[in-house]
Amino acid sequence: MTAVAGTAKTLAESAYLRIRDAIRGGALPPGTRLRFAELQDLCGMSVTPVREALTRLTAEGFTTVEENRGYRVAPLSIEELWDIARSRQLIEGEALRLSIAKGGADWEGALVSAHHLMKRIARTTQQAPTVVDEDWNHRHNVFHRSLILACGSPILLSISESLYDRADRYRRLSWAIPDNPRAIEEEHELIFKSALARDAEAAVTYLRVHYERTAQQVEAFLLNKAQPDVSI
């Protein structure tokens, strides 16, 4: 029984990750009706783990469910955009402050490494300047997590990770802006140097500004009803 339960859990986790990544990457756009047969083909598995995955995705805000109408990809909204941004500013700001206070040499080393690796590759692909390189996206995630990794609170880290995932669909919109005027690399550099210098006030301020600018750009896009290419 234990082996069977473990296999079912693994399948549900796999289905969750595949559907979530399709939503985050734009393969399943906001508002798309989610049909079980199509999701089973996407995941390569039976309906049960797909159903479990959708239940989890709905709880996390990636999908919605309508009585007698089934599931849809959750729409994007300015209200949710700012709710996520403000929550990240509060949660990650406090986590960063704690991390700077508590972090030792190991934390510094991990942060330096994460920042260096993120800078080593271009943010967008050569073929499509408005499409983010997925390797860079992964390194970007590692950098932001490294900033707060020494906070000493598993709960703060868990909430931060969940908010990061919720923000991803919106973040990709900001990356997809043609001729984006933001110097995102410089924003990361300011956060990084302030954290290493143990200047918590400056680091937290730069992090807040970083998230504020992203939200402002996405809000402008949504208000203009822009439809950028955010596919992987």
Rank of each mutant, 00 (worst) to 15 (best):
L76R: 09
L76T: 10
S77W: 05
S77C: 09
S77G: 15
S77V: 09
S77N: 04
I78D: 10
I78Y: 09
E79W: 02
E79K: 13
E79A: 15
L81H: 08
W82Y: 14
D83S: 15
D83F: 06
D83Q: 14
S87Y: 09
S87K: 13
R88N: 08
R88D: 01
L90K: 12
L90N: 08
L90P: 00
I91V: 15
E92M: 12
G93A: 05
E94V: 10
E94R: 12
E94T: 07
E94M: 07
E94Y: 07
L96P: 02
L96H: 00
L98T: 01
S99I: 07
S99K: 05
I100S: 04
A101T: 03
G103Y: 02
G103L: 04
G104F: 07
G104R: 07
G104Y: 06
G104K: 08
G104W: 05
A105T: 13
D106W: 01
D106H: 09
W107M: 03
W107F: 05
E108G: 04
E108I: 04
E108C: 03
G109E: 15
G109L: 11
A110F: 01
L111E: 05
L111K: 04
L111N: 06
L111C: 06
V112Q: 15
S113I: 00
S113D: 15
H115M: 11
H115C: 05
H115I: 00
L117G: 01
M118P: 00
K119L: 11
R120M: 12
I121C: 01
R123Q: 13
R123N: 00
R123H: 09
T124S: 14
T124E: 11
T124Q: 14
T124F: 13
T124Y: 12
T124L: 07
T125F: 02
A128E: 13
P129V: 06
P129D: 10
T130K: 01
T130N: 05
V131I: 12
V131G: 01
V131N: 01
